[in-house]
Amino acid sequence: MICLAAGALLIPLGAAEITLAWRHSVEKTLWEELWQESPDGLVLAEARVQGSGAGMDPPEGARLEGGFWRWRPKLPGLREVVMRRSGATADWRVCVANSCRAMAELVPAEADPVVLKPCP
């Protein structure tokens, strides 16, 4: 199971697969990442972006499906994913089983950073 950690809070998300979503601060396009728990840690199974520009061009091999450029990043499993919340952009969205919530519904709005990691 995957958890969010913010300071002393540990919030189980109730799933071994979640999607993080946010809007790019300049281009205002949607970016999504599908994270899965594995024996190697958290694995980025797919990245999706609705457009390109301002440092967010899809890599070679990305395919356009349903209005999103989609690809599978070649990254090793990670122990944790650290997310910063500047307040200059809309908050992260956390999606579990096609149900999305703003991160502020899960952890305090002032919590920064918030860490995505396998639950202990």
Rank of each mutant, 00 (worst) to 15 (best):
E17I: 00
E17C: 12
I18H: 00
I18T: 00
I18P: 01
L20W: 00
A21E: 07
W22S: 04
W22G: 05
H24E: 01
H24K: 06
S25Y: 04
V26A: 03
K28L: 11
K28N: 11
L30N: 03
L30D: 09
L30G: 09
W31Y: 11
E32W: 02
E32R: 15
E32S: 14
E33V: 06
E33I: 02
E33F: 07
L34T: 08
L34F: 02
W35T: 02
W35A: 02
Q36C: 14
Q36T: 05
Q36N: 11
Q36R: 15
E37C: 10
E37M: 08
S38Y: 04
S38T: 00
P39I: 02
D40S: 13
D40V: 03
L42P: 04
L42V: 05
L42H: 04
V43M: 13
V43Y: 10
V43H: 12
L44Y: 05
A45Q: 13
A45R: 15
E46K: 04
E46W: 01
A47H: 03
A47P: 01
V49H: 07
V49P: 05
Q50P: 05
Q50W: 08
Q50I: 00
G51Q: 00
S52Q: 13
G53M: 09
G53Y: 13
G53E: 05
A54V: 02
A54D: 06
A54L: 03
M56V: 07
D57N: 15
P58D: 06
E60S: 14
A62R: 07
A62F: 10
A62I: 02
R63I: 13
R63K: 15
R63D: 12
L64R: 12
E65G: 08
E65Y: 09
E65L: 12
G66A: 07
G66Q: 03
G67A: 10
G67T: 05
F68G: 10
F68Q: 04
F68W: 03
W69Y: 11
W69D: 04
W69A: 09
R70I: 07
R70N: 07
W71R: 02
W71S: 02
R72E: 12
P73F: 10
K74P: 01
K74Y: 05
K74N: 13
K74M: 12
L75C: 05
L75D: 07
L75F: 04
G77I: 00
G77W: 08
G77M: 09
G77H: 08
L78G: 03
E80P: 04
E80H: 08
V81P: 01
M83C: 13
M83E: 06
R84S: 12
R85L: 13
R85H: 13
S86G: 15
A88D: 10
A88Y: 14
T89I: 01
T89V: 10
T89N: 08
T89C: 09
A90G: 13
A90R: 11
A90L: 15
A90F: 10
D91Y: 06
D91R: 08
D91V: 03
D91L: 13
W92F: 09
W92D: 03
W92R: 04
R93T: 07
C95P: 04
C95I: 12
A97T: 01
A97L: 11
N98G: 13
N98K: 14
N98P: 01
S99F: 12
S99K: 15
S99E: 15
S99A: 15
C100K: 07
